[in-house]
């Protein structure tokens, strides 16, 4: 590459867009990045207004190859997945899916990922669900449980170890 970002001395990674597409490929519609930067996504981004996630910039950075900047940013973990960017993109592009892909790449490249998400993964691997039945309180502040309400016990996966094994395999090989 003959391009250098003089503010950070970073060089664009030629394969960045390809990597993003690899993740998405097959799982989503093939995503050509013909974004013309109208910014409609960011205008309506439910996360930007709170967390400065700029979907149009994610599109530009992943296209131009400055993907490291994205992988290390905390903003990508603040997408609320409201899907408005995808819904309203005049080029039918999907910033939300690119953001997913970038996060997936961050996970694979061992970047610091948000603990909330890694905990959920652990829970699913352990029980099949993101959480187990909780004790809640009613409007009068009385503790209530699933059983107490007369609901039948949850019927989760029979062989959790088996599921765990398959999931690990699917994750490692990456389905596409």
């Amino acid at each position: 590459m003959s391009i250098v970002d003089l503010t950070s001395m970073a060089e664009p990674e030629g394969e960045a867009q390809k990597k993003v597409n690899e993740i998405i490929k097959g799982l989503k519609e093939d995503i050509p990045n013909d974004c013309y930067q109208c910014g409609k996504c960011t205008s309506g981004c439910e996360a930007f207004i709170l967390t400065e996630l700029e979907p149009h910039k994610v599109m530009a950075l992943s296209k131009s190859g400055f993907i490291d900047e994205l992988l290390n940013s905390s903003e990508i973990w603040t997408c609320v997945t409201c899907l408005k960017c995808k819904e309203r993109c005049p080029q039918d592009l999907a910033p939300v899916d690119v953001i997913f892909a970038v996060k997936n790449i961050a996970v694979v490249s061992g970047k610091q990922i948000d603990s909330g998400y890694s905990n959920m993964l652990q829970a699913v691997l352990g029980t099949g669900f993101i959480q187990s039945p909780k004790e809640v309180v009613d409007r009068e502040n009385n503790a209530v449980t699933r059983e107490g309400l007369g609901l039948t016990p949850m019927k989760g996966p029979e062989e959790i170890a088996k599921l765990q094994q398959v999931l690990m395999k699917a994750a490692m090989e990456t389905l596409r």
Binding site: W77, F100, N104, Y117, V124, L167, A171, R176
Partner: peptide
């Protein structure tokens, strides 16, 4: 769906 962030294949 909650695991999309980690791995779309999952």
């Amino acid at each position: 769906a909650p695991l999309r962030h980690i791995n779309l294949s999952l």
